[in-house]
Design a protein around this nucleic acid. Structure first.
Length: 245
DNA sequence: ATGGTGACGCGTT
DNA sequence: TAACGCGCCACCA
């Protein structure tokens, strides 16, 4: 994930003035993405929504009802949005001012998951500073206003299953495979009760999709069902993927 | 040992 | 306010 997205999310941590939502100009357009053509709503601050193609009429009606103003059709997206939607490195500005602090924290944590890697819902909850709000994280991600731009498809269930996805579980799986995620290996490990991998040369334990875990030489690789078990065996949690302590 | 069930938990509407 | 949800874990058969 690129730094500009992270800083954009961080910058939004401060609540916007209450008057802002009604004053911000909004337009929409359609754009090609990794999920096919999508509807994209944009304000002066950045992308506000990414939704399935065909959402325009419904969105425009809701917008008129709420703000008493027509929704303008745009002929182009802000710089960086198109490439980011198509899965290339981009610098998509985001407008998430309408979200709660919790929602922003959840999306910011999700944005830190590298392409091709996955993290459990519980990991996002902990990273967002609410370790027990696991189910609330699921609620937030189910309504992620900017899928793809904030990669909620990289958040999976703790038991190794993919979990649900707003565009369908099959799409979630396809997106992850397209990013090079080692889903088959992860599934095979999970079947054996292994959810973490450790290296006896570095003494570090990782999530199986962590780039560091994937470079562990087979002879030095050890599987564990929990981080606690790995720690008890003398390993410490990876600083990159931060598995639960 | 694997799969189903319920209590639990939390932020939001 | 009570009910809801992209979850999690202990417990059971």
């Amino acid at each position: 994930m690129n730094d500009s997205l992270l800083s954009a999310l961080a910058g939004l941590a401060a609540p916007a003035p209450a008057t802002l939502p009604g004053r911000v100009f909004t337009g929409w357009t359609s754009a090609p993405s990794r999920l096919g053509d999508v509807f994209v709503a944009v304000t002066a601050h950045g992308v506000q929504f990414v939704r399935p193609a065909g959402s325009a009429d419904e969105f425009a009606a809701a917008y008129r009802d709420r703000f008493d103003r027509p929704l303008r059709r745009l002929d182009r997206l802000p710089a960086g949005v198109g490439p980011a939607l198509r899965g290339r490195a981009g610098r998509p500005p985001l407008d998430l001012h309408a979200l709660s602090d919790f929602e922003r924290d959840v999306l910011a944590a999700t944005a830190r998951i590298p392409a091709g890697q996955t993290r459990p819902y519980g990991w996002v909850a902990r990273e967002a500073g609410r370790p027990r709000a696991v189910r609330a994280v699921g609620t937030v991600l189910a309504r992620n206003p900017v899928p793809l731009l904030v990669p909620c498809h990289r958040v999976v269930r703790a038991d190794g299953a993919a979990g649900d996805y707003m565009f369908g579980p099959a799409r979630k799986d396809a997106l992850l495979r397209d990013e090079g995620a080692n889903l088959d290996e992860v599934a095979a490990l999970a079947r054996g009760g292994v959810h973490y991998l450790a290296s006896d040369t570095t003494g570090i334990v990782c999530f199986p999709t962590c780039r560091d875990a994937r470079r562990i030489t087979p002879a030095h690789r050890h599987g564990f069902p929990t981080v606690a078990a790995a720690v008890a065996a003398g390993y410490r949690p990876c600083r990159t993927c931060r598995p639960a302590a």
